[in-house]
């Protein structure tokens, strides 16, 4: 991983159209400003990782019979609303 030292007010340019700026450092956190094209997806890393992991776990946990058993239970439940 490339590691650079920057001060508040300074920034980094990634490619031709992404600019990352260090806004300020406050109570142990670093505020970062990002200028990027609208279709660039930007997420907090841990949130992205959580969803990635859940996608894998959700696919792994099922047994084929589980769906039939739960469908019966839930069909009952949703029809009651």
């Amino acid at each position: 991983m490339l590691v650079l030292t920057r001060k508040p007010g300074e920034g980094i340019v990634i490619g031709d159209n992404i600019i990352i700026k260090i806004i300020e450092m406050k109570s142990g956190g670093v505020r970062i400003g990002i200028d990027a094209p609208k279709d660039t997806k930007i997420y907090r890393h841990e949130v992205y990782e959580r969803i990635h992991q859940e996608n894998i776990d959700a696919a792994a946990g099922w047994d084929l019979n589980d769906l039939d058993i739960l469908s019966d239970k839930l069909a009952d439940r949703t029809s009651k609303k």
Binding site: Y48, H52, N55, L67, D72, L74, A75
Partner: peptide
């Protein structure tokens, strides 16, 4: 998310009625 190689999916026919 995180699995960008998975782009094509099928909806499997259900054996039972239900929300899943």
């Amino acid at each position: 998310i995180g699995l960008d190689q998975l782009k094509h999916f099928l909806v499997m026919p259900n054996k039972k009625d239900g929300p899943l």
